[in-house]
Amino acid sequence: MTLRRSLPGLAAGALRISLVLSAVPAATATSPAKAQGPTAPTVSEQQVMPHLRALQHIADRNGGNRAHGTKGYADSVAYVKSALDRAGFRTRLVPFAYDGTTGHNLIADWPGGDPEHVLLTGAHLDSVKAGPGINDNGSGSAAVLATALQVAKSRLKPERHLRFAWWGAEEQGLIGSAEYVKKLSGADRRRIDVYLNFDQAGSKNTRQWLVIHDDEHGETEAQQAFEAWFAERDIPTFDIGVGGSDHESFGNVGIPSSGFSTGISDCIHEACDDLSNVDPKTETTSTDALIGVLWKLATAAPRR
């Protein structure tokens, strides 16, 4: 990922984050109305970590990375798409050109839900050329994939239409997400109620989850839901506004956003960002948080 300002205390070259609120414990967050609809499932490490192991194997057999324009990225997309196709999603690869090479975004729609109210959940799937990118951002990609597969397993019947996305060439400057947004009509942009973004979901030594605060729209329904989920489990959060992660492309055109990160590891954008750079417990907690909030937002009547 490419980000602009450093969170105090983090190593140089780490995620550049612009803070928008003071650090507060999750228990102080404003709680939204009680969840509607079915109870969200949870996952085990055994349902999430195999996706990260698969991405590591893909990198290992393709020069050590999964970067834009490489076979490692193409194989990563093929792995995710195959899992979604088997689960019953409608998938499509959306090509774009960057730096003389064709890249792809992967879009997956779950049948049903109001097409005028889309809940879009995404993560960037590419790594840098220096390493396999298992925390940045295999971890976010795996959490989104595991969540989508839970939707299929539960045969969820959402109020909002559910769409999932994996972006390419984000490490080159948020290229894939920007290309997707650019090709949306004005009407299609208005149909997206909120975009949920997940970048580095499995960082080791995580003590608090960094919940995205939408700089333009303020405290969104999604942000409230994330903070409530963590507060119910006595997990501290920190509200952040992020310049440079994938959701920036959506914010630039007025689409509300939230999501979270678990912060930066010392191995960001390096060869050591491998499977050993992810904490399985953190990755599982992140996936459960995503599932819990997605269930809440998907099964509640849209606010607008």
Results as ranks from 00 to 15, higher is better:
T42L: 10
A97R: 13
P95D: 10
S249A: 11
T147W: 08
D126R: 02
S276G: 12
A146K: 07
A169I: 02
D288Y: 07
S6N: 10
T28P: 00
G202P: 04
A12N: 08
N277I: 13
A165Q: 10
I235T: 02
A83Q: 08
S185I: 04
A228N: 10
A59G: 05
H213I: 08
V242R: 04
D288V: 09
K153G: 15
V94G: 05
N135L: 08
R160V: 07
S257Q: 07
D126L: 06
T262H: 09
L210Y: 11
A83W: 04
Q46Y: 14
A67W: 00
A83T: 12
P38E: 05
S31D: 13
I264Q: 13
L290H: 01
H217E: 09
R160I: 03
F89K: 07
A11W: 09
P132D: 03
Y98M: 14
H124N: 11
T91E: 01
G100L: 03
A27E: 01
S127Y: 00
W166P: 01
G173N: 02
N197Y: 06
V151I: 11
A14R: 10
D126G: 07
S127A: 04
P132N: 06
N62G: 01
G168Q: 02
S257M: 09
S265E: 13
H217C: 12
R189A: 09
T237V: 05
R207C: 06
S257C: 08
